[in-house]
């Protein structure tokens, strides 16, 4: 901007002698407007190009999902199908195929998300707002827990559940109860696994917020007669609602989209406990070729719950991120 206004207009040096100041005052703004208009065009052009760049895959996915197999072959991927190439049949099929996987995924995602948040918050309280010896060492363990790669644990993990724990036999007495089925043992295994894996990162997230809390306020609660637990329950917990939203969204997305644990613990797409990601991985795969519209429709259906969670907690999330 300063560059534009400093650049002298195309003024005859001779003319400037007499009325220099007036001339330059008039010519500068015009030079400024031209260059700023150009700048603006360039800016909008770039923004539009970026929007197109980022939205094209999604748009392509959407239009592909509503095409018939015939239309996929005859039209360009990102162009919508003609009237005879349009169908919602793939969505219906994908929904049928994924629905029980969605139910299973919900069954382990929701509990483990809640457990992660609750345990993470409690652990953070104990590690941040309570003073005791050796808490740094414990905190170091939590931080280390974040960096354990999934690949490193999948074999011990599947051994642990299938050989050592063997939940579906040990809990056999439960399966006679209404609403409970043997495959819920696998769901339970997934809940515990995801909770264990999610607690460290949730703890660190909560700790970041708790460190900003007034230490004097915690002390005031103690002097007011509140025990450690009551101080958490009545002071810290209500104040960490925004952070719970952040953790819910984050953890729900993580667990819902997770594939490796599903693969190793559930093992087969045909298992009644199969998760949505596991079923999705095999959806539309066939000897005669990949059914792209079906895969796309399935992908959108599988992504829907995470979007819903984000929308539900968006306000709280914004507040939590600010903390």
């Amino acid at each position: 901007m300063s560059e534009g206004s400093n650049t002298p207009g195309p003024v005859d040096p001779g003319a400037r002698v007499g009325e220099g100041s007036d001339e330059s005052r008039e010519s500068d703004p015009s030079a400024f407007t031209t260059s700023s208009a150009l700048r603006r065009v360039a800016l909008y052009g770039t923004v539009l190009a970026l929007v197109a760049f980022y939205l094209t895959p999604i748009e392509t996915g959407l239009v592909t999902a509503i095409k018939t197999s015939e239309a996929v072959r005859t039209t360009l991927p990102f162009l919508p199908p003609g009237p005879d190439g349009f169908t919602v049949e793939k969505w219906v099929y994908a929904f049928d195929a994924l629905s029980h996987g969605m139910v299973n995924s919900m069954l382990f995602t929701i509990p483990s998300t809640i457990l992660c948040a609750v345990f993470g918050s409690m652990a953070a309280y104990g590690l941040t707002l309570v003073d005791w010896r050796g808490q740094i060492a414990v905190l170091a363990l939590f931080i280390a827990g974040i960096f354990i790669p999934y690949q490193a644990v999948i074999i011990p993990l599947s051994e642990f559940w299938s050989i050592w724990m063997n939940l579906d036999e040990r809990l056999a007495f439960l399966w006679a109860l209404p609403l409970l089925e043997p495959h819920h043992a696998t769901i339970l295994e997934l809940i515990v696994t995801h909770t264990g894996y999610g607690i460290p990162i949730c703890t660190i997230l909560f700790r970041a917020q708790y460190k900003t809390m007034s230490w004097e306020m915690i002390e005031a609660a103690r002097l007011d007669g509140a025990s450690l637990w009551r101080g958490y329950r009545r002071i810290v917990l209500p104040l960490s609602v925004p952070m719970f939203a952040v953790v819910f969204i984050f953890q729900f997305t993580q667990v819902w989209n997770e594939f490796l644990f599903s693969l190793t613990i559930i093992r087969s797409v045909g298992d009644p406990a199969a998760s949505v990601t596991l079923i999705l991985s095999g959806l539309g795969e066939a000897l005669e070729g990949v059914d792209f519209p079906l895969r796309m429709a399935g992908a959108f259906i599988a992504a829907l719950p995470t979007l819903v969670v984000y929308v539900l907690f968006a306000d709280q999330f914004a507040e939590g991120v600010r903390v």
């Binding site: 004097e216 306020m217 005031a220 609660a221 002097l223 509140a226 009545r234 002071i235």
Partner: peptide
């Protein structure tokens, strides 16, 4: 322990509980 001493303290920063009303703040103890 502090909670059993029957001592009340006023802090420099006041240390009020921000999510509670004045009534709740005063009832808490």
């Amino acid at each position: 322990p502090a909670k059993d001493r029957d001592i009340a303290m006023v802090f420099q920063s006041y240390a009020l509980y921000p999510h509670m009303t004045v009534r709740e703040n005063m009832s808490f103890g």
